[in-house]
């Protein structure tokens, strides 16, 4: 309800009563304000973003500062926990809340960064394959087959191991191994769009291939790409966690969630919150992104039955 009034204030035009007068943007705004899953996912994601940006500024505790006298303190709701260390401390006496807060930044950076890299690779290849067809399509399809045949995580591990781990490397490696969905979706969308009359009309008025791809084709595949994008963000975040857990992703002492889980695994029976807390954080983030992605799919699909109430 609050969400809706907020959106209505922002875009008053979208809620004019005549559907006939709505631009495509207005329609999407109207639909999205009626999609429960999308609203929930988006709100959660915004909250997580706010935490990532402002959390470390407001909660001014270093995630790296060790205090070996205060090792493995329990979180506040456990016996012996104090408000000074809300989530307790880890094996080196670092504040766990601060570490998880910083981890949010890393997860979001890597998730969105890697998905962007994957999108650029996948969409470029996909649109070219779909538009030009012929041998371009065959080469790209061959690349796709190779990509799908390789075990992604193993490949990423090898590359990170060879180049040496850093956030940038992890982003590019995960991105470079996750473009298959983008390719498949943009290729088939392009094949459909290039046969539509408005593309033929654009050719007839003398538009170049590049102009057609940029102006006519890519903007129309956007609604499908954005859905894949959100899903890939979730996958990339999980991938980063896996890599870090296995020791070839983010290196200690940087607080990545996957690394926190890896470090906590020795204490799983005695201090389970060391694993459970970053686990919950990871779960919440990925669920919120996936719910938003699902919602986006419903909203951007012209045949969807999201009520326009």
């Amino acid at each position: 309800m609050i969400f809706k009034t907020f959106i209505k204030r922002l875009f008053p035009r979208s809620f004019d009563n005549e559907i006939y007068n709505l631009t495509p943007k207005d329609l999407i705004i109207r639909k999205s304000s009626n999609h429960g899953g999308f609203k929930f996912g988006l709100s959660l994601l915004i909250i997580i973003f706010l935490f990532a940006i402002f959390g470390p500024i407001i909660f001014d505790v270093s995630p790296y500062e060790q205090d070996l006298t205060k090792r493995l303190l329990p979180p506040v709701w456990k016996e012996g926990g104090t408000w000074e260390y809300i989530f307790g401390t880890d094996g080196n006496g670092r504040d766990y809340f601060a570490r998880i807060l910083y981890g949010t930044r890393i997860s979001l950076t890597i998730g969105f960064g890697a998905a962007c890299v994957g999108m650029i690779i996948g969409v470029t290849l996909g649109v070219c394959a779909g538009y030009f067809g012929g041998w371009v399509d065959q080469v790209v399809s061959y690349l796709l087959t190779c990509q799908l045949a390789l075990p992604g995580l193993l490949l990423a591990m090898t590359i990170v191991f060879l180049i040496g781990p850093s956030i940038t490397v992890v982003i590019f490696v995960i991105g470079a191994t996750h473009w298959a969905f983008f390719l498949v979706v943009s290729r088939s969308a392009t094949q459909k769009i290039k046969n539509l009359d408005y593309v033929t009309a654009a050719r007839a008025i003398g538009a170049s291939k590049f102009q057609i791809i940029i102006r006519d084709i890519i903007p129309n595949t956007f609604s499908q790409i954005i859905v894949i994008f959100t899903l890939e963000v979730g996958i990339a975040i999980l991938n980063e966690a896996s890599l870090s857990f296995l020791g070839v992703g983010i290196q200690p002492p940087t607080p990545s969630w996957g690394l926190l889980i890896a470090e906590g695994k020795e204490a799983i029976f005695f201090q389970p919150w060391l694993i459970i807390l970053p686990g919950i954080a990871l779960f919440t983030l990925v669920v919120s992104i996936n719910m938003m992605g699902d919602g986006l799919r419903d909203i951007t699909d012209p045949n969807s039955k999201v009520s326009e109430e």
């Binding site: 495509p24 539509l196 009359d197 408005y198 009309a201 654009a202 102006r215 006519d216 903007p219 129309n220």
Partner: peptide
């Protein structure tokens, strides 16, 4: 086809 002749965006 009047529906595919104009780019919707």
């Amino acid at each position: 086809d009047p529906y595919s002749t104009l780019n919707p965006i």
